[in-house]
Design a protein around this nucleic acid. Structure first.
Lengths: 193, 193
DNA sequence: GCAAAAGTGTTGTGTCTACACCCATGT
DNA sequence: ACATGGGTGTAGACACAACACTTTTGC
């Protein structure tokens, strides 16, 4: 009864680099009596992750039991490891989770640098979502929801010229649901701004 | 290495009964080499569940590792067990998940009888969501989304009279996302029905 | 001046809530 | 007739996508 199958913690980290979504996976055997967090800490560089959440617990093909975590790394953070572009089944599940949450939460904070222009944020969203995003609408949606706020200063234009870009930052660095339930809201809950 | 902590599967079942949300929890120790499903089968009456999904994997206060599943039972199905109205922390998490999914998926199918009137469905939603729901809008939202469809026949009125109610059924008996991403949809995705 | 990049104004559409009103039945 | 419960019509509020237009820079 004390002997159950070995339990491992698997980390799947995602980040956006040069317009592409990159993955890195790692696993650690969980020592007897050890918490999930400790094992996750050995699997991934957790302090480097801006956001972590549990994805799934499943039996691996080899019969071991694995608890899978999704970690997100800001684009400007240097995290060594075997980053790759090809997504295995687990990475696809992680991306699906990320895609969904990008649209109704502020998870973007975990992929973006501390301060950025809308164009830079747009690139991140395009890579993570896998489809084009209008920077006009991206800005408006996120500002209206209170997800983004202005940071001081401007980014000087490149050699090609152009208007200097305003800098923004995420208003919160913790996951928040920003688009609560499109339908079936409680009665009398129409004011939102 | 082979000796990790004992792993248990915990099932949290929810149903609506007499206008109240009820919970039943159970757990089963997972035998060596056994899958999660088998243990879940011993913990809950799985064939009676119209929908099952994984909620969380966590360390219990006693140090055991538990994988928690959420199961939903249709209101008219007879499932013996120790059903109660007071929700512990796990049950609250289960309810939160249910509440969220009620608004952007068709999970309702797993709580409702095969065929029902809008009023009956409304009662279920009220109990699960914890706030009032207008039957007018409930009907319109779910029909517009293609979640509900008409069933043949009418329900005769009670002794107090009233117009006979139309019968409806859920169009699908498997979880489907019906309100995909409010914002940041791919370009050119405006037509919907 | 012209191209490039950023940002604002504005319009149209879809989806929701709220509420007025009509329909079908029992007594 | 009238109370009761079921259902439809419709108006108003948002939030969003799309696109035209203005602003600010480099060359």
């Amino acid at each position: 009864m004390a002997d159950s199958t070995a339990h491992v913690v698997v980390g799947v980290a995602l980040r956006v680099r040069e317009g592409r979504l990159e993955v890195m996976s790692a696993e650690a055997v969980r020592a007897s009596g050890e918490g999930l967090e400790e094992a996750l800490g050995r699997a991934l560089d957790v302090p480097a992750l801006a956001h972590v959440e549990q994805l799934d617990t499943r039996l691996l093909p080899d019969g071991r039991l694995a608890t899978v975590y999704l970690g997100l790394v800001p684009a400007d953070r240097v995290v060594p490891g075997d980053w790759t572009n090809d997504l295995d089944e687990l990475a696809v599940a992680a991306q699906a989770r990320l895609r969904a949450k990008l649209s109704y939460t502020n998870v973007g904070f975990a992929l973006a640098p501390a301060v950025f222009t809308i164009s830079e944020l747009r690139e991140i969203y395009v890579a993570a979502l896998g489809h084009d995003v209008s920077s006009t609408n991206l800005q408006r949606v996120l500002v209206r929801r209170g997800v983004l706020e202005r940071a001081d200063g401007l980014r000087a234009p490149g050699r090609a010229g152009g208007r200097p870009a305003a800098l923004f930052r995420f208003a919160h660095q913790r996951l928040t649901v920003t688009d609560e339930f499109a339908a079936l809201r409680p009665p009398g809950s129409r004011a939102s701004g």
